[in-house]
């Protein structure tokens, strides 16, 4: 196994015509832990990773593996394993797909059955990839990253399209890699998707860094809040206003800036409003994430309530 090397992104910008996809981005990813690279769709995650891997030219700034750009790595697949999208030639089998790139990278073809076994594709290895499910494609993309037994892993949305069993599997997979001292960078547009897998987070929005730290530090950022809902939301809104409580409209009710559900319940009681839900928001992570990336539904208070875009996105993605 190769050693884990830090990923270093310094002052990185990428413009596509008039559009700025990545804007003066700097961060470091250390070995020995799983780092989540988070941000909404279109935040610039994939562009950043493609620049890092030498597939897209940076407009300015650098992205290196311990100081060496990808294109200058003497043995790239033995240094970095990258899975960017699960695209393959549909007429080629998984085994042949991996053999082609083992040859190209000068790796022994004996690695191919080993990595197929590792990702659980051994029994489908001689089937054409055109018949694979999205989950199987994701596993094949991971098999490719393992070919050179590298010290650094760069995975773009690897959980997308996996079934629950696959998600459990990849959590263990990522943690195992990190515990072996490798550098693991995993992107996702959903914090909830990776929050059980990652130790650190790098959050970007509109191409800019908005947060960098441990997962725990993100949790601390968000004060606990209360969720409350009523069959009569208008009346509930009035009652909360009367009690002087700040709140945002969410999909499953109002998110009130008040850690104590009892005070929210009291306000509803005073206003004579029937409640259908009242509980403390257990983890403020997702809300903290959404407010960081500027996608909080409460950005425009007073708008029609039942729109909480991010969670419905989440359902669409699964």
């Amino acid at each position: 196994m190769a050693d884990g090397i830090p990923i270093e992104i310094t002052g990185l910008s990428k413009h596509f015509g008039a559009v700025t996809a990545v804007d003066d981005l700097s961060f470091t990813v250390e070995p020995g832990r799983v780092t989540g690279f988070l941000g909404p769709n279109g935040a610039g995650k994939t562009t950043t990773l493609r620049v890092l891997l030498g597939l897209v030219h940076a407009s300015s700034g650098t992205a290196t593996f311990g100081g060496t750009p990808y294109r200058a790595l003497p043995r790239p697949l033995e240094t970095v394993g990258a899975a960017l999208d699960a695209n393959f030639h549909p007429g080629r089998t998984a085994r042949n797909h991996l053999r082609v790139y083992a040859t190209a990278a000068g790796l022994p073809s004996a690695r191919v059955p080993v990595v197929l076994e590792q990702v659980g594709l051994a029994e489908f290895a001689d089937r054409r990839v055109g018949g694979y499910s999205l989950g199987m494609r994701q596993r094949l993309a991971l098999a490719y990253t393992l070919l050179g037994d590298p010290g650094v892993f760069v995975l773009d949305e690897p959980i997308n399209g996996l079934d629950p069993e696959g998600i459990r599997w990849i959590r263990v997979f990522l943690q195992t890699l990190a515990r072996e001292g490798r550098t693991v960078l995993v992107s996702s547009h959903l914090l909830s998707e990776v929050q059980q897998s990652v130790d650190e987070v790098v959050i970007i929005s509109r191409g800019r860094l908005v947060k960098r730290g441990t997962l725990a530090s993100l949790e601390l950022d968000s004060a606990p809040r209360t969720i409350v809902d009523s069959p009569d939301r208008a009346a509930l809104a009035t009652a909360l206003d009367d009690a002087g409580l700040e709140y945002d409209a969410g999909r499953s009710g109002f998110i009130v800036d008040e850690p104590d559900p009892a005070r929210v319940g009291h306000a509803a009681f005073v206003g004579g409003v029937e409640l259908s839900a009242l509980h403390r928001l257990k983890s403020g992570l997702e809300e903290s994430f959404l407010s960081l990336v500027g996608e909080e539904p409460g950005d425009e208070p007073g708008e029609a309530p039942p729109v909480d875009e991010a969670p419905s996105d989440e359902e669409g993605a699964r």
Partner: peptide
Amino acid sequence: TSEFRHKTLTPTFLADPH
């Protein structure tokens, strides 16, 4: 063209960036 069509330039250029 099949490399472009099936987007296999990504694994191709990752395995050999030259």
